[in-house]
Write a protein that binds this DNA or RNA. Structure first.
Lengths: 345, 345
DNA sequence: TTGAAAGCGCTAACAC
DNA sequence: GTGTTAGCGCTTTCAA
């Protein structure tokens, strides 16, 4: 242990209580003593020990960020690192957003990844005495396990109905709807869907609902051979489009529920000598920066990952501060960005 | 505060010392008492408070991960989120790698981003009593500030000569060399370089050295008009290639020191109706998963971000454990991946 | 084999 | 306005 409050007290020739008062701006301290203490603090390079502070019942000023489905389950094996499903920039982006505001507000981020099991999350919360938790893309099993926890929890991209959680997200069903409708408006009728696994309360399920809604609105059938559920990765898109193309040669357009999959779709179509959008149109979801840099640039539903992180953090910090927060669920705006991957039929 | 050791002691009808012995596997405890205690622990859902543990001089089991140049400095402004320079997947990937092993070894990750100033890093280390620190792409100023810190520090991608730090990286000069040599071997002579800012002890500087070395070996001049330093981002590449093309119409090839910039280069070349590799060849650096999915697929120097994170974490954990570590600097292998973005002249 | 008690660094109630 | 002190939850020495 380094410099403690005792050392400062000795140096400034005051009691440790006085030092505590000064560094916490509490109690009435003379300007003179204040200055003495501050000088000692500076001279010794004193930094209060947060463990000790935490122990006397203060906040930990620690926010946990949990990313349950980050990377592959088997990534602990070194030999598998070539398949490391690392590529979705979403997680890095949102982490950056969360960390930035948290730091500004005096919180530190405890990063909790996906190897941790649902019941161990609770342990970490208890052990580290987290002030709050943000969960990105929470799975139902995880959430069930956490409902008895008494710290504020904000869920990003979850559609759970459990009322004890605050939520930040977008209207994924609407996103799926406008993406599909865009295709329909341009005359497409045989529209394939490539999405991640349809998990209960997950975003892909909602985007799928939007897809169905748009088709049903035009009295178009939902054909099973037009739908393919894959991993949310480039590989997923790569193999998904191949499968779909085999199952239905009439396909003129694809709605891909994630940009990362669209990368793989592009590659496969290139290999197959399909031209985008001449032979097949694509609408995607996310509007990651790189979509503009693809050739042709990708039409996609735009969401702000930055704002998702920012709003979730704001909400959590308010909750920690005990500020009454009126809305349990915050839905951020999205819009369709029309670029060059779609043609009129 | 929740369940404490006292509660467990009461429940098990033993002293708190005995509980402590049991949960730490210390002292000699009868199987019988052990069982009593364990049962009480389970019944009450007890989790030891790490702050308290830490206070009695134990390890904090916290590893800091510092990402100094993550995103834009001005990203605190909401209006700037469209420019959010978020897109380099490198940081998310390496974080994932570090977090995975750390968790497995019983450490938690404290994420420290780029808004934090150099002197504040020291405060966090002291306040949270970090057991160790990993710094990704450390700037000299930051490192100078940290040299007096007594916890183990592992630097990823830094070429500082300061001996108190352990380092994990690749041979960036060699990478720049083989990339450029590949181009030279195929007959290219006018080779442009698009790289990030040439910062002291940084990777771009080394890759640039490799570029120079390869050219000099063939008695080719290093032309200033062939070199462009930009931000390591898609935009950087986008504007960099435009500038280079204007400055020298004879260019037949580009060495881009980061895949993320190559994305921008592809876009600009597409807009300009340059064909890759027919009109211009490109060799890049990183081998991010998406490079294989670009069209044409990108020839690039491959490094394992996964291993960088993994080895750095292993090293740090050994250091924390007090295990003598022989090598101060670990250099991981790289190799050139030849794909379709380069043609023989 | 188990327990009592000191003490880690700090805050806050209370006394002066 | 400043100091004394109890106590946060835990580990560990020492005694029994």
């Amino acid at each position: 242990m380094g410099v403690t409050i005792k050392d400062v007290a000795k140096e400034a020739k005051v009691s440790i209580a006085t030092v505590s008062y000064v560094i916490n701006n509490k109690g009435n301290v003379t300007d003179e003593t204040q200055e003495k203490v501050l000088k000692a603090v500076k001279k010794l390079g004193y930094q209060p020990n947060l463990s000790a502070r935490n122990l006397v019942g203060q906040k930990s000023n620690l926010i946990g960020v949990l990313i349950p489905n980050w990377g592959n389950a088997d990534r602990l094996s070194e030999s598998s690192h070539d398949n490391f499903n690392f590529d979705n920039p979403f997680y890095g982006n949102i982490l950056n957003s969360i960390e930035t505001l948290s730091t500004k507000e005096g919180y530190s981020i405890l990063l909790i990844g996906s190897t941790i099991t649902a019941d161990k999350v609770k342990n970490v919360i208890l052990q580290r005495d987290l002030d709050g938790l943000i969960i990105i893309g929470a799975l139902p099993k995880l959430i069930d396990n956490l409902s008895e926890i008494k710290i504020p929890i904000v869920l990003i991209d979850s559609y759970t109905k459990q009322e004890e959680f605050y939520k930040v997200g977008i209207d994924d069903e609407y996103g799926g709807y406008i993406a599909t409708k865009h295709l329909l408006d341009l005359g497409h009728k045989e529209i394939g869907l490539i999405s991640g696994e349809l998990i209960e309360d997950g975003v892909d399920m909602e985007r799928f609902k939007g897809y169905k809604k748009a088709l049903l609105e035009r009295n178009l059938p939902i054909k099973e051979e037009n739908i393919c559920n894959v991993g949310v990765s480039m590989e997923g898109g790569y193999y998904g489009i191949e499968k779909l193309l085999k199952q239905n040669q009439q396909l003129t357009a694809i709605f891909s529920t994630a940009d990362i999959m669209s990368m793989g779709i592009y590659k496969k179509l290139n290999e197959l000598k399909y031209k985008i959008p001449e032979d097949i149109s694509i609408v995607s979801f996310d509007n990651f920066p790189y979509t503009e840099f693809l050739h042709p640039s990708l039409s996609t539903v735009s969401q702000s990952v930055f704002l998702k992180g920012r709003r979730a953090t704001e909400l959590l910090i308010d909750l920690i501060a005990g500020d009454r927060v009126d809305k349990q669920t915050l839905t951020l705006p999205i819009k369709l960005i029309k670029r060059d991957s779609v043609k009129r039929l």
